[in-house]
Amino acid sequence: MDLILFIVFAMFAVASALGLILQTHPINSALSLIGVMGSLAVLYLLLGAEFIAAAQLVVYAGAIMVLFLFVIMLLNAGEERNPWKAPVVAYIGGPVVIFLIGAFVYLINFTLPPMRSVSFGDFTGGGPREIGMAIFTKYLLPFEVTSVLILIAIVGAMVLARKEID
């Protein structure tokens, strides 16, 4: 059962990811991205990471995607040109992608020690309680310092969007 769920959603994630980069209309790409995020959330859930699965849905598939769609609509972005026509993409990009995927498949299949398949319910450390404990004890400093990062993003948005200097 776990395996079937995994295969279904993993295939869906890969298919949506391909759709994301192959479609030429930004809205279609954005919708494919929701597919990627959603199926990833299911995969997290299968691994026992409930909190991350929920956060993935609420934050990424929800909030961030809505912003993406807003931006696309506000910019009124139309169809993209087909990038495959550029010789660099067609003759270098394609082979490089195939080579990299092949290399990763080879490495994962043949150099990593064989791993037991994961079944639902094995891992129970993914709830909000455990994550809260980790964030406020061991990872306290990164958590706090992230606020500086967010502050910068806010200041930056303000600086770049201001009407005029002076």
């Binding site: 310092v145 500086v148 990062l149 910068i152 993003a153 200041v155 930056g156 600086v159 770049l160």
Partner: peptide, 8 residues
């Protein structure tokens, strides 16, 4: 932090 500030 360093990069985003530099981009801006």
């Amino acid at each position: 932090i360093s990069s985003i500030a530099s981009y801006i």
